[in-house]
Simulated scan of single mutants.
Amino acid sequence: MTARYRGLTWDHPRGRLALERAAETATDAAGAPLIEWDVHPLEGFESSPIEESAERYDVIVLDHPHLGDALAGDAIRPLDEVFPPAFLDEVRAGAVGPSAASYTLDGRLWALPLDAATQVAVRVPELVAAPPRTWDEVVELSKTAQVALSLAGPHAFLSFASICVALGAADGVAPATKPGSGFVAPELGAQAFGIMAELASRIPEGSADLNPIGLLERMRRDRDIAYIPLVYGYVNYASGPSALRFDDAPAATAGGRRGSTIGGTGIAISTRCRPDAALVVHLAGLLDPIAQGTFIPDHAGQPGLRSAWTDDAVNAASGDFYRGTLATVEDAWVRPRVPGYIPFQSEGSAVLRRALLEGGSADAALAELDRAFDALARERSVL
């Protein structure tokens, strides 16, 4: 029997398993299956045009930078048209870090923060006994241990932005979220690029081509990468045989702001969808605090509510993944949410990656990054 609604998520146990298991028992008023989930790979999740997905799917799992294009293209519904105000207020208050804020534009919430993730540090515990606290300590560690950077796809840009967040924290300087005056102050950008360039000169062979999942898989399996200072956290690698240890991201100075760029996923409803009461109840149930602290982590998910991140049982089952990285997710930076941002992120990452790996000019790379970012000012901003 055909499901009433079609959903799209990303193809990893963290992205699909809880949604698929919850759908197995969900039915509409006539007793038919409520929702069927399709998947696309991580690369599709990071870069596929949201407008195209919204033409084919009723429910879409997305990342917050897609909101600029989604709103410009009238692709998704504001959730206050669908869910009761009291429920949305509870979600906003209960979300960890800026997870709910990242899906909020024009005072309206556009996606439910199902899954919270940000860039954190990860190490092989028998190779690195204690994590570096600062970027200077990361550089020193790289001289005696195999330290990798997350550079594939959009991640060279995301790592760069996060280091800028850490380095600029003391002076209140951060990357821009509105185009028109460049992406980051030149001195700050040059300092962040310099750190990445020194680390990039010593990264393990073949690691620059791996996305976060590939890096963590290799790290757990081969143990030839000892430490990564910034990679999107995946609780799936924090427990069981050969578990990795996840820690807060480095700061510029001990006790300073952990530089990190919020990721995670939200559940949006496309404008093509006509949600009935059964779908509303089903999706709201995924954000129920009890489900977030039991069903979601029990099915390879990574909760979006702070109550789950601080729960004793959830942490005991995950090698303290959540408590070990909580300060970082609470401090995380929210990316621009303007039309055209996703292609800019891909382009900017390619520019930085070439300069880092091929010995290109830092000044030229940063100037190109500013040019590409400011070109977004010609797009219709929704901020």
Rank of each mutant, 00 (worst) to 15 (best):
D11S: 12
H12G: 07
P13Q: 02
E24Y: 00
A29S: 08
A30Y: 04
I35T: 00
I35P: 06
W37C: 04
E43S: 15
F45R: 12
F45P: 00
E52S: 14
E52K: 07
D63S: 10
H64D: 07
L71A: 03
D74H: 14
D74K: 14
F87K: 08
F87Y: 12
S99A: 14
L105V: 10
D106R: 14
L112T: 07
L112M: 08
A121Q: 07
E126F: 07
E126R: 12
L127T: 12
V128Y: 08
A130W: 04
P132G: 01
P132Y: 01
R133L: 15
E137M: 01
V139W: 05
V147C: 06
L149T: 05
P154L: 10
H155N: 12
H155E: 15
F160M: 11
S162M: 08
V165D: 10
A166N: 03
L167M: 04
A190L: 14
I203R: 09
I213A: 12
G214T: 02
E217S: 11
R218K: 08
D222G: 03
R223V: 09
R223E: 14
R223I: 10
D224F: 08
V235Y: 11
V235L: 05
S239L: 05
S239M: 04
G255E: 01
R258I: 02
R258D: 09
I262W: 09
T265A: 11
G266S: 01
G266V: 01
A268F: 00
R272G: 15
C273H: 01
C273F: 03
P275N: 03
H282A: 12
D288I: 06
P289D: 13
H299F: 03
P303R: 07
L305C: 06
L305M: 13
R306C: 08
D311R: 08
D312P: 15
Y322D: 08
R323V: 10
L326V: 15
P343I: 09
S346W: 08
G348C: 09
L352R: 09
A355P: 13
A362I: 14
A365Q: 10
L376S: 00
L383S: 13
